[in-house]
């Protein structure tokens, strides 16, 4: 990690490794119907030669395999730091981002959790300020940690609030 994204004196917290599993499950669930359909086409081979469908199926499988490993990289890099006056969120491997959101600028905090996430007991927290560009999203927080962080952020937002 280059020093650009690691200010000195900052303690980073990783998101839960269960996020990797959740994202992998979602990936497989999302791609299975497509892969099954293509597999059927490979067997039946209507309209087009069989190898066309085989190549398409191969591409889907390659995509799946790539993302299977890439998800682990992305999840490992997704970190956040609670500082005295602001929250840092850092993510991305190829395209990296670090956002610093002052607690006093927060308009509201969202906690969301889809069915797959719930199965793995994790939730996503997103912070919103008056600027739409602020994209401070922390996925893969264990449910109790998400609740703690939400309460803490709301409390700090109220204490340091300056809105617009």
């Amino acid at each position: 990690m280059s020093t650009l994204f690691a200010p000195p004196g900052t303690e980073w917290t990783s998101v839960s490794p269960r996020l990797t599993s959740a994202r992998r499950v979602a990936l497989v669930l999302g791609l299975t119907p497509l892969a099954a359909g293509l597999a059927l086409l490979v067997v039946l081979a209507p309209f087009l030669p069989r190898w066309v469908y085989a190549v398409a199926l191969g591409a889907v499988v390659a995509f799946l395999v790539f993302w299977w490993f890439w998800i682990a990289v992305l999840v490992r890099r997704w970190r956040y730091a609670e500082r005295d006056e602001d929250l840092y969120v850092r993510n991305g491997a190829l395209f990296r981002t670090l956002v610093a959101v002052p607690y006093g600028r927060m308009q509201y905090v969202d906690v969301s959790s889809g069915p797959v996430d719930r199965h793995f007991g994790i939730a996503t927290i997103s912070l919103h300020t008056a600027a739409p560009g602020t994209s401070a999203v922390i996925p893969g927080l264990p449910a109790d940690e998400a609740a703690r962080l939400r309460d803490r952020l709301t409390e700090l937002g109220g204490a340091q609030g300056s809105g617009l």
Binding site: L94, F95, R96, L98, V99, A100, R105, T129, G133, T134
Partner: peptide
């Protein structure tokens, strides 16, 4: 009036040491 501050870096920027 500043709301939040972001640093971003793409792969080409990383090659050139930019952000």
């Amino acid at each position: 009036r500043v709301q939040s501050v972001r640093i971003t870096q793409g792969p080409l920027q990383r090659r050139l040491g930019l952000g």
